[in-house]
Design a protein around this nucleic acid. Sequence first.
DNA 1: GTAATAATTAACCATCTACTTAATTAAGTC
DNA 2: GACTTAATTAAGTAGATGGTTAATTATTAC
Lengths: 110, 110
Amino acid sequence: MTSSDPDSFTALSDPTRRRILEHLAQTAHMPASDIAAQFTLSKPAISQHLKILKAAQLVSVEVRGQQRIYRLNQAGFDDMSEWITRTRRHWAQALDNLETLLTETPDDDR
Amino acid sequence: MTSSDPDSFTALSDPTRRRILEHLAQTAHMPASDIAAQFTLSKPAISQHLKILKAAQLVSVEVRGQQRIYRLNQAGFDDMSEWITRTRRHWAQALDNLETLLTETPDDDR
DNA sequence: GTAATAATTAACCATCTACTTAATTAAGTC
DNA sequence: GACTTAATTAAGTAGATGGTTAATTATTAC
């Protein structure tokens, strides 16, 4: 995964995973059991979701005895923001180029 | 779909659809046939992807005779940016609250 | 009107995804 | 050590997804 193709969109495509991130955003850090308690899903289901979020660098995990404490991680959010910002910038440039063309050589393209 | 739960993450979870948006970002607007020509996929495959992108408000389409001219659409990008920004803001607040707690009542939470 | 073209929709299917229960691993308590 | 608990991994599966070809719709050209 490079920052030109974020895995984080894929991670965020699932509503449960978005909810997990929102819960984590509200509480700074949270053990896996507390995260699971917010949902009616099985614990293995939550564990699988957390695994995907970790791989996408949207969360990080600290091992404390029996507990796994999860936190949000900047990198995954940065990747997405960059992709959105870059795409928007290219779009703005393309519109600029189009406008330049339109002012230089008026034709019936529009 | 409300802006609290963007469909656009789901739309962007597929690499082909991300590529489509990147192409559109480079060229301001593009007929469906030209979009399809950028890929080795079948035209119906591209059509299906465009349908999903339209539903997620990431593209808009203008009918011109036989042609369908596609453009990027702000709304889908705005939805995603808002979700990311909001989640980050809640996170920052949660960290602030934690820091306030830590400075008021030092305990062994850390 | 016929024929060609652009594009979508329909139907199909191999593969993937998000869930489940079962099994396993690791840590804590007595 | 036995038992409990937190959490993950393994195995299984119903439903979804992203591709295909076939069929259809709409527009254009003659």
